[in-house]
Design a protein around this nucleic acid. Structure first.
Length: 454
RNA sequence: GGGCCGUUAGCUCAGUUGGUCAGAGCAGGGGACUUUUAAUCCCAAGGUCCUGGGUUCGAAUCCCAGACGGCCCA
């Protein structure tokens, strides 16, 4: 169809091109006029008009076209012409019904607006809206850009289990499923982290996995129970190296997806050009909330301070959750321009290496953009004894009622005991990145079939 | 989990204080028309007003409960 339009571009009104073309697509509109039928066919590249006359197509062919319904998939053979009114068209010599539509397409002019129908019957949304189609093409290009970037830097893409006997790598509740033959429960992964680090132990050195994680949580404008995550691990790198790589990778994705590094966002714009602003987490929290979390190391104490400044602070939450609460309530929404928050308290980061100059902090950063967290990275903890202690801290949180605290993974500890080189790791939320690159403000707009109540 | 809003024809939507309120456009059906562009014209058809209760002489409209969805908050 695109080829036929290209041929037509060379024609003057009333002219006919040499040679035959064959096109096929969905019937978008039809205008009858007795012995003449005009039909607009659409495909992924756009639309083209079909011009059919009784003289040229014959009685049977014209009847077939006159009996079509909007939404039918139709094939046409003919020549490319430009009509008197200047419309590039295919003058039909033969028409063929390729697939009949028994249900009507969405309204041609009003489009499909009901969000529920748009998400539940996304095919109608795609059918009705070129913007929506473009949206998912952009997503695909961003992902392709990320894969190319990583492949060019010597990373290899690996696949690790989605069904896991024990889950870990993120603070989240898992989905539980059943393996009948093994007669045991398995978990859908909440992260790929612990398996990818096993790959690093084994010497693959630079690995990434781009796939689905599953977290048993509610839905919101930025949460879907299954979502797409990129994780990368690079031996002999640290979190500073990873921060530089992330900036380059996101810029690359932006260029491949949108053609530039400045993207529109909520009426303004965001410049993704590296380097991004970097600021210490503790200082940023202090500036945003007036609270220096390192001076309130007791959960009850911090909770009181938070409530004193008007922040929500749930009862019984561990200290780490409270700090995260300050971050998400007081700081995150204001981080619109790309910002990297560096150096997190150890309690929030069970898999990150301690800073040598301050063992209460770890070499971790999170990247924020558009008021959302888009990436999380650290110098990976590769000391098995320290890792064992971190798991013990999580068990204490769990015993205290934090049901997002993950269980200890002895098999992972065994892997670390075989020696893991110093490694820089990264997690990048692909859905949120796509939101950012396409100026969409709900994760449902960037997932083809978002989770819906049934 | 909380607050607010929404649900009327296949699609997009009107429907006033409770009283010709079951409506429009498009789509779909029948007909006219051989260069149209949301073609035009004529004709006919199309409904569990989300569901279930309640108030009332009378409910799409008011009240209660529920389902589903959206936005905001947690």
């Amino acid at each position: 169809m695109a080829d036929a339009r290209a041929v037509g571009e060379t024609l003057a009104p009333g002219d006919e091109a040499e040679g035959n073309v064959a096109i096929a697509g969905r019937l978008m509109a039809r205008r009858g006029q007795g012995g003449t039928v005009f039909a607009d066919l659409g495909d992924r590249s756009g639309q083209i008009q079909v011009w059919a006359t009784l003289d040229r197509l014959g009685d049977a062919g014209l009847s077939l076209l006159a009996d079509t319904h909007l939404g039918d998939i139709v094939g046409v053979r003919g020549t490319v012409v430009r009509t008197r009114r200047g419309e590039i068209s295919v003058a039909a010599d033969a028409v063929e019904m390729l697939a009949k539509a028994l249900r009507p397409p969405p309204d041609r002019h009003a489009g499909l607006r009901d969000p529920e129908t748009r998400y539940r019957q996304r095919y109608l949304d795609l059918m009705a809206s070129e913007d929506v189609r473009a949206q998912f093409v952009t997503r695909a290009h961003a992902i392709t850009g990320i894969r190319r970037f990583l492949d060019e830097r010597g990373f290899i893409e690996v696949e690790t289990p989605a069904l896991q006997p024990i889950y870990g790598g993120a603070a989240a509740r898992p989905f539980i499923t059943r393996h009948n033959a093994l007669d045991r429960d398995l978990y859908l992964r909440v992260a790929t982290e612990l398996y990818l680090k096993r790959c690093i132990v084994g010497g693959l050195e630079k690995v990434y996995e781009l796939g689905k994680d599953f977290r048993n949580e509610g839905v919101s404008f930025k949460h879907n129970p299954e979502f797409t995550m990129l994780e990368t691990y690079e031996a002999y790198a640290d979190y500073e190296d990873v921060a530089g790589m992330l900036e380059q990778m996101v810029s690359r994705a932006a260029v491949e997806a949108t053609g530039g590094m400045i993207v529109p966002w909520k009426g303004g714009q965001i410049d993704l050009t590296p380097p991004w602003r970097r600021v210490g987490l503790i200082a940023a929290l202090r500036e945003a909330s007036g609270i220096d979390v390192m001076e309130h190391r007791d959960a009850a104490d911090l909770q009181a301070r938070m409530r004193a400044v008007g922040l929500d602070a749930p009862d019984g939450a561990p200290w780490s959750k409270l700090v995260d609460g300050i971050l998400s309530q007081a700081l995150e929404p204001s981080l619109v321009e790309p910002t990297i928050l560096m150096d997190y308290p150890l309690e929030l980061s069970p898999f990150a290496k301690r800073r040598e100059d301050d063992p209460g902090l770890v070499e971790r950063f999170e990247a924020f953009c558009g008021g959302m967290e888009i990436a999380n990275a650290f110098s990976e903890l590769n000391d098995p004894d320290d890792q064992r202690e971190r798991f013990a801290m999580l068990q204490a949180d769990r015993a205290a009622g934090d049901d997002e605290a993950q269980p200890a993974d002895e098999d992972f500890l065994t892997a670390l005991e075989h020696g893991m080189p110093p490694t820089g790791g990264l997690g990048l939320g692909i859905d949120r990145l796509t939101m950012l690159l396409t100026d969409r403000h709900s994760i449902r707009e960037v997932i083809l079939f978002p989770a819906m109540r049934t």
